[in-house]
Design a binder for these strands. Structure first.
Lengths: 339, 339
DNA sequence: CGTATCTTTGTGGTCGCACACGATATTATA
DNA sequence: TATAATATCGTGTGCGACCACAAAGATACG
């Protein structure tokens, strides 16, 4: 239509040099008139590039929260495998800040073209992120967002808002009760996750606004000391016989659920986070009333998708993507999709 | 590897005739050993077939429930446009059973290769479905499922379960109250949707199991008579001054919400279905406490996806796909995705 | 005007696959 | 054994894009 060869059209489409102004204009006009959309599949076929991504997550046992994120990432890589997308995983110790840097450094040796990471604290993330910026490697945050080091995209829940919401649901159940409790999970004195703390902040915000006179007890449990925990809990409940509503902001509510079950504390209301298999079991047997979910599989999936959209399909992508705050119960859990 | 040309390999892959048993076996073995996965994009590129789908939905005004389904379908067609997928819509009058058949007939003239429909009653759907079976055109149900006329796939919520769940949430709010109310929306004496009735059945099931002594009032409103409705409501609330918890199983809870707002009935709890803009407004201003959603966009999207998976990519697809039962509140609505 | 240099354009091979058509091998029949 | 019929196989072209390289046109300079 523009009376020139496909080569020239190609140069215009890819904004390459070596085209006269006249020809360029002519081609651009026609492109616009036709609303030309390149066939991304043919394009990927022809360009035949490799896209090796890297992913840096906290170490975890099978079945814990991060397993779901991994699954979503693998799923996405599979769907994009025809575009030559691949991913390699590295894991850092969330309770040892140096580990993050070390694994980050190592991962760069493979020359990845895009990175997905669950960042640790801003101070310790910064040197690594700076190297990525230097090398112009796009990176995506999962789970928690460092606003001061803006990524290509972020996928995760708004922790404050989810805590705020959790408080409302809790108080619907608590009715006239004037005391509730928060259980924390710590490891060698370190919380190890920003999310937990921010959820609690949102929770307390709601309580201050709507139930300022409700007493909020707190109890710290230790992630790897079941026996101590049991004794701690025995003591705690002896001291608070009227308590019947508790929440925990980490993903291990099943520890509490099992305790309630073995002690036959049936009229207890428990709210927790994330759909670990053991949590879901508690939900189904009634020891946990509500679980709040955040679609970790989708977070992982969307992270890969965002990298592909950016690098392969040259699409605009949203920077901040808060995941839905999903409330699950015994009645709805069977219909919930993970992706 | 099998010492034969690509032509023969091609014949094996597509299960076409004209290959000796020996060669076929050899190729199949190698294919399996390599875990060969065809590049579906290259495949679609080369085959260059057209896929025209048709979609048959109830008539509706802009902004009503079905608009969202349409949006999801259009979105999906766009993502599959490089595979030459397209769709055309037809609409039937849900209060006139003959309309369904008539529009169904008309739509077949274009020779669609796949159909998406929101079925009406089994009796009236059957003749149309039979024609589809005759012509071997795959069809997908959206919203409601006719088990006796099994489709290629179904996408929709389990209405009974969602009603059952709604009852639990309602009674969490109702606390010690001993009476609640159900509002129905009818049109010329016809309910026009199976979903509404089945949700109510599930709701009553829960009430029977958990609150057998709770009184359930009922009130029928008419979809196109606002003045009559207002008078009906005035009367109703005069007769039931203690009532403070209501539910409606159709998507027009905003009618109730607006009534409550204009009458300053603040301590009222209202539960409704679907995220129409007006419903969401009520949720945000507090006149509606909870909305139950079912991701209509995703239903539409997945319907197209299922047809493409089946016809283009020859993938196995799930027949029965219940959508999640999502509970939304003022606190979580802003984080909810529609697709 | 001839040559060198730079700008602009065209050509042809490629990606992984589908498919039509023609070629060769094998078997059946006279 | 020659020929026909059938079974099996190979080749070439095209899908829509990418891109390296070569060719042609334009401009500058001596």
């Amino acid at each position: 239509m523009a009376r020139i060869s496909v080569g020239t059209v190609d140069r215009v489409i890819h904004n390459r040099s070596g085209v006269s102004k006249k020809s360029r204009k002519r081609v651009e006009d026609i492109l616009k008139k036709l609303d030309y959309q390149p066939n991304i599949y043919a394009s990927a076929l022809a360009s035949n590039k490799k896209y090796a991504f890297a992913c840096l997550l906290p170490q975890h046992l099978d079945g814990e929260y991060w397993t779901a994120v991994e699954a979503g990432i693998n799923e996405a890589v599979k769907t994009y495998s025809d575009f030559n997308a691949s991913v390699s995983f590295s894991f850092y110790d969330p309770y040892d800040y140096h580990s993050f840097l070390e694994m980050g450094d190592k991962l760069l040796n493979d020359g990845p073209v895009g990175i997905i990471l669950a960042p640790t604290t801003p101070e310790y993330s910064k040197p690594f992120i700076n190297r990525l910026i230097e090398k112009a490697i796009p990176y995506i945050y999962i789970d928690s967002l460092l606003k001061e080091l803006p990524p290509l995209a972020f996928f995760g829940q708004n922790p404050g808002q989810s805590g705020y919401f959790a408080a409302r649901i809790m108080m619907m159940m608590a009715r006239e009760n004037k005391e509730i409790a928060i259980f924390r999970m710590i490891h060698q004195g370190i919380v190890g996750s920003n999310q937990q703390e921010n959820r609690e902040l949102g929770f307390r915000q709601y309580m201050k606004e709507h139930h300022p006179d409700c007493k909020i007890w707190e109890l710290d449990l230790h992630s790897n000391q079941p026996d101590t925990n049991n004794r701690t809990l025995d003591n705690f409940f002896k001291q608070h016989p009227l308590l019947s509503d508790c929440i925990t902001f980490n993903s291990k509510v099943y520890i509490m659920g099992k305790y309630l079950r073995t002690h036959k504390m049936d009229n207890f209301h428990l709210i927790g986070y994330d759909l670990l298999k053991q949590n879901v079991d508690c939900l189904k047997d009634g020891s946990v009333s509500f679980l709040i979910a955040q679609q970790p599989e989708l977070q992982g999936y969307n992270a890969i998708k965002a990298l592909c959209d950016h690098l392969i399909f040259k699409k605009e992508i949203n920077r901040i993507n808060y995941m839905p705050i999903d409330l699950l119960t015994k009645e709805t859990i069977d219909y919930y999709h993970n992706k």
